[in-house]
């Protein structure tokens, strides 16, 4: 039993793996944002103009962090109906976030700003590349949430383990926080 209680105190290996993975992802964005800072101090930098839509998307992803938390609370309390509702809401908010990001970049394009191609400026290309990579990570999160939600609805044996969701939720908060960091960064380091 000694060994058991020792194990109990330890973090689950999969959760631990996720934490290391988040450190790794963070390094990628640290690399990108430092590149941005280096670039910014050089000639022909263009002041970023951040469209309003990005504020909406920021609010969306913050709210989704809240709903995923509610989903987690629900499954811990075995309230499966609420759980399913919050899961679907979260995934939908995630998708909405991605949609808003795309709208934001379209808005930039309509203002005559070239993100890529001839005549593009590195300031905006950075905005696109960094937000795009962030978006891919959000997309991964949306897919993970959907898979968990679908499994919860369809499996024959009733599974009440909150572990997969705990892992997904941690990741979800992470991509949320990452976006907030990037958003502040872009607004501050125009």
């Amino acid at each position: 039993m000694q060994a058991m209680s020792e194990q109990k105190r330890k973090i689950h290996p999969h959760k631990f793996t996720l934490w290391v993975a988040m450190g790794s992802i963070l390094m990628m964005f640290a690399g990108l944002t430092s590149a941005y800072i280096v670039k910014r101090s050089q000639a022909s930098w263009m002041m970023l103009e951040i469209p309003m839509v990005f504020w909406y998307s920021t609010v969306t992803i913050v709210v989704s962090s809240l709903t995923v938390h509610l989903a987690l609370k629900a499954i811990r309390a075995r309230e499966m109906v609420a759980y399913r509702r919050w899961m679907v809401t979260t995934a939908a908010l995630g998708a909405l976030f991605l949609l808003l990001q795309v709208v934001g970049f379209n808005a930039l394009g309509e203002n005559g700003i070239r993100l890529v191609g001839a005549g593009s400026n590195a300031s905006y290309s950075f905005l696109l590349a960094i937000s795009g990579l962030h978006g891919l990570h959000v997309l991964g999160g949306v897919i993970a949430l959907m898979v968990i939600a679908i499994k919860a609805v369809s499996t024959t044996s009733r599974t009440y383990s909150s572990l997969p969701l705990e892992i997904a939720a941690t990741y979800w908060h992470f991509v949320d926080a990452l976006w907030i960091y990037l958003f502040i960064f872009f607004n501050w380091m125009k």
Partner: peptide, 24 residues
């Protein structure tokens, strides 16, 4: 785990420059 992602970010920007006409 801490250094490969940075190479990845460098490679992504290079892919942008190569295929999307950006000027990183």
């Amino acid at each position: 785990v801490l250094s490969f992602p940075v190479l990845l970010s460098g490679a992504v920007l290079l892919l942008f420059d190569r295929n999307l006409g950006t000027s990183f």
